[in-house]
Design a protein around this nucleic acid. Structure first.
Lengths: 336, 336
DNA sequence: ATTTTTATCTCAAACGTTTCCGTCAATTAG
DNA sequence: CTAATTGACGGAAACGTTTGAGATAAAAAT
């Protein structure tokens, strides 16, 4: 490994000068700068990030805390897409991203401790469960943090506009004439709460009664559970004309239940999903759903985080709301 | 930030002793070790990974090179799952993983240069295109490397058994009585070649003619293209009784084409996919496909890479083949 | 009682940077 | 012509570790 020193001896200058030349400081003549740059290139020099970080306390490294009770963080399409755009934006700004977990070497440590150990410049948190000790520690630590889809006091959050998304779907469905609408919730979480709030509010605005028996407690990303619940709904004496599934993926289970019951979508019953994943538009009929702007969420998260890091004095905690877009498929039938 | 020095002054011992105590060296008495450990904990000490790496030349950090012409690396379910299990295994062994790209700070650099800069202990490469200059540099560098689904000379590779997968599918389909089988290829790559080879070989073994007009050049992960090609196949005078789709995701396009033509699966035409993604089993009929053992691939990749890193002298380059498993759905009809 | 071993700890260099401060010559100002 | 300014560069400390070689004292062996 070729170091600054190697260059300095070969060129007969001091290490300090080489460092300054390569980092574009002004107190080095143009002539020597070029000479040193040339030598550096010839010798295949690359800065040692560890040494640099040791001195500067900047690692140009962003931690990603992605957890999920199922442990399948990356397999989750929403997370994967958000992370992907986060990564692209971060990389464009010169930051690397590394996953933060709970052990390094043989030692166990908390996520926060891990962040300190690696000296990440900032952390983005995207979890299904924000109520853990691990999250709490990071939130209360002194590393810049951005959270996704969860609001903590005094921390910047990027929020997918869940409330608005559901509202738009309710309005759409109401416009199609539906009045008896079932809603299968996701597992209890801030996101689920917000969506439910949006549902109830929009129903109220449209004068639609929210019948308790049509408000089912389901799970996100759980087609099996959704299958069961959909069966229950279908078996009702006064069957709903439209079902809100927890998300697109789960809706596959719901659609299966409907098919297995000898009914068809949208003729016998209408269905809407949530997320706007690719598959939803490959089904027939295409699913009417709400596309979350995952690209924008990830990009925004990276931008805000980097801004917090690089301009700590001028950047303030804020909540960024990212709207999505209703995708009109063919899974909702006009009944009026 | 509390350092070894802080502990040493507080406890009245030398920095060296603290270091040794905390790292479990034997030349420190049990009494002082405990005293130091206690102090370290109380003071909230955490080792500085940069300083440590600077000395030891080990970062406990693994680079991940995930590229994809579409730039959608993480969104790709196969990649995401492999990466996920890779991550789990690596973390269990105490390694972090960071994505390697082409710029750090304001500077542009090649992937290999980036690896050197970050001093990753090893790199795993999973790309759709292995023929780039960037891959070439890494392969020819001096960092331990494991590749996924591509074989380079003198480098360990983890291979999904594509040949066997297709062979099993052909045998299954042949057992069901199909003789006129269409095969939509993925885009030109080592994987596509291997699958095609498996297809031809198995057909030959079963005495099935591989008709050139039934061998179509398609794309992986491209439902639209697959839609078109399936339409072409359906329109043939002597229509195939079974179609091999490039992969499960693409097959959604093919299934759409069949439905749009007023035909049904599997009654009018049989279909098989490849990958075994979750969605394929939520369709009705369920897709008959080949489940790649992504968990094993990722786990194996991490194990081999770590082994190369930690036992450079006793570990040799090898090719690990990971078998998958045929999933019998209901998309292939028995016609004999 | 002397020597050897063992256990425990310290010294000090090294890893590759960055950066403040100082030096020295050349240029400009007075 | 002297004094002040500027430009270009070097010295050296510092960041937080690790580690082999030495030091010291206590224990064991002779």
């Amino acid at each position: 490994m070729v170091s600054l020193k190697d260059i300095s001896v070969r060129c007969g200058v001091s290490v300090a000068t080489v460092s300054k030349a390569l980092n574009g400081h002004k107190d080095v003549s143009e002539a020597t700068r070029e000479r040193l740059l040339k030598a550096a290139k010839e010798m295949g020099y690359f800065p040692n990030s560890q040494a640099r970080a040791l001195k500067t306390n900047k690692t140009l490294n962003l931690g990603v805390m992605f957890s999920d009770e199922a442990g399948s963080g990356l397999t989750h399409e929403f997370f994967a897409k958000v992370l992907n755009s986060f990564k692209i934006e971060a990389e464009a700004a010169g930051y690397d991203i590394t996953f933060i977990n709970k052990n390094v070497g043989r030692q166990k440590m908390s996520t926060y401790e891990h962040c300190k150990y690696r000296n990440v410049d900032g952390v983005v948190i995207a979890c299904t469960d924000f109520s853990t000790q691990d999250v709490y520690e990071v939130i209360n630590g002194d590393i810049p943090v951005v959270t996704i889809d969860h609001i903590f006091d005094c921390r910047t959050a990027i929020m997918s506009n869940n409330e608005k998304g559901i509202e738009e779907l309710v309005n759409y469905v109401a416009d199609m004439g539906h009045r008896r609408i079932a809603y299968i919730q996701g597992n209890r979480s801030a996101v689920a709460d917000r969506r439910l709030a949006g549902f109830c509010k929009a129903c109220m605005n449209r004068g639609i009664e929210v019948a308790p028996e049509l408000l089912l407690a389901g799970d996100y990303h759980n087609p099996e559970k959704t299958y069961e619940l959909t069966k229950e709904l279908i078996a009702m004496s006064e069957r709903p004309t439209c079902i809100f599934m927890p998300d697109d993926y789960s809706s596959m289970g719901g659609l299966g239940a409907i098919k297995d019951s000898g009914l068809s979508v949208p003729n016998d019953i209408s269905v809407v999903g949530y997320d706007g994943i690719a598959y939803s538009q490959l089904l027939s009929p295409k699913l009417t759903t709400y596309l979350q702007d995952t690209a924008e969420i990830g990009t925004e998260a990276a931008k805000k985080l980097i801004s917090l890091i690089e301009n700590p004095q001028t950047t303030f905690t804020e909540v960024v709301t990212v709207d999505g877009r209703l995708i009109e498929g063919a899974s909702v039938k006009r009944i009026i």
